[in-house]
Design a protein around this nucleic acid. Structure first.
Lengths: 241, 241
DNA sequence: ATCTAAATTTCGCGC
DNA sequence: GCGCGAAGTTTAGAT
């Protein structure tokens, strides 16, 4: 069968709705259904959602998204790799399953306003600037952004507590742990840096102490207190976008 | 003007595309556009995305989502509260803006396969079980889930380091900090608990030490090491769904 | 498959 | 508005 996409139906009867959604599922197409539906989820958690108008999206990769009129996040969903099938209850029902972990999503429509099936191809990749990784590259390029005399020795250096963003030495030869954050940081980032410094001090069991430097645009007051408490340092740096 | 939704158009000409999207923007409707587009974003970060087939969703609340054929997350987006307008370049262009922080998203279509405009109403709220808050309620109902003799004294008790999930005393009268997690935890949760215990020890400057108990389904090995290092305890408990 | 941390995280609550 | 932490977080990278 040759599929001529897009195929769409406005105010379709139940049979036509099921035909189109089935077509999309069988051929791994992009499917959207707009209508009044109820949703049940059971898996890592469990949820129930009473009837309302929503847009349901099935992706070729097995993703299912249920979007209400509000919010950036879907109110219910199923991640990529799930298996979809039609139920035989109600006018249109979609069941989505996965294992590891076992999860099921059930969408039952009371009415369907519109169904559309598309064939999507997308070779392009997103290029993104202003990430933490970009900050790291800038510092490697110009270590003085951290402080004069700083010498990076490794990135993603492994410690017992995890990988350190940048490991290096200062002009006095002290070991330095640099933790990068692309935005204003709270207490969690301080604890993270402290874990790395602790781990490295144990590993090096050095006479010279290990310095911990947080590089970020800014810190909250509580985070600032924690920096002081734990003898850590802060160097302000904005991400570039 | 009386709006009769849904309004849809398959393989629309540019003028019809713009008409429908403009209608949706002006009346705060649910709009979907499927077609080949390029996307640029500039704000907290910056990104560029070359042409590909995508589904673009405009929500009544000002959310914009650009979905490719893969992934649960949109490849580009704009959060709720943004303002959308048409550009006069290309056959269909949508610009979305916000302040605080200043961010702009630009979607330019090379071809439009389908446009749909819906009127969505959704009064229903999601009921969700199996959350951390549910675990807290279970423990308040049966404190022995933590340990025999445990007596909760407060939830969300404020400390200099933030609010403690459950604060209480053990059968010997020691202060106890309980940190809850609904899933397997890594190093971050241990640091969080340690911050709370530190803060309370400073606040109470007590002879009796403050106990820190992590309640979660399980812990990773590194987290387990950290628990030992910091003299914290672990009580296994599954969330109920 | 698990671990670890980033993310334009988003979201909700409190101040 | 900011601060803080939860989330069915998701995603990417490494082991």
């Amino acid at each position: 069968m040759t599929l001529q996409a897009p195929q769409t139906a406005t105010e379709p009867d139940p049979q036509r709705s099921r035909e189109l959604v089935e077509l999309g599922i069988d051929h791994s197409l992009f499917v959207t259904v707009f209508g009044r539906c109820r949703v049940e989820y059971d898996g890592r958690a469990a949820s129930t959602l009473a009837a309302g108008d929503r847009l349901v999206m099935l992706k070729p990769d097995g993703t299912v998204l249920v979007h209400t009129d509000e919010g950036q996040q879907p109110i219910n969903w199923q991640p990529p790799g799930c298996t979809q099938e039609l139920t035989d209850t109600s006018i249109l029902g979609i069941r989505s399953n996965r294992d590891t972990p076992p999860e099921e999503l059930l969408v039952e429509f009371d009415s369907v306003d519109h169904v559309a099936v598309f064939d999507a191809t997308d070779e392009s990749e997103l290029t993104l600037q202003g990430t933490e990784s970009d900050m790291r590259d800038r510092i490697l390029d110009d270590p003085a952004l951290v402080e004069p005399g700083f010498e990076p020795r490794a990135t993603e250096r492994e410690t017992a507590a995890g990988a350190v963003d940048i490991y290096g030495v200062d002009e006095d030869g002290n070991a330095v742990v640099v933790e990068l954050k692309r935005r204003r940081v709270g207490p969690d980032a301080i604890s993270q840096l402290r874990r790395y410094v602790d781990a490295l001090e144990r590993e090096l069991h050095a006479e010279l102490s290990v310095r911990g430097i947080l590089v970020a645009p800014s810190v909250t007051e509580r985070a600032s207190d924690l920096l002081t408490q734990h003898n850590l340092e802060f160097v302000p740096l904005e991400p570039e976008s």
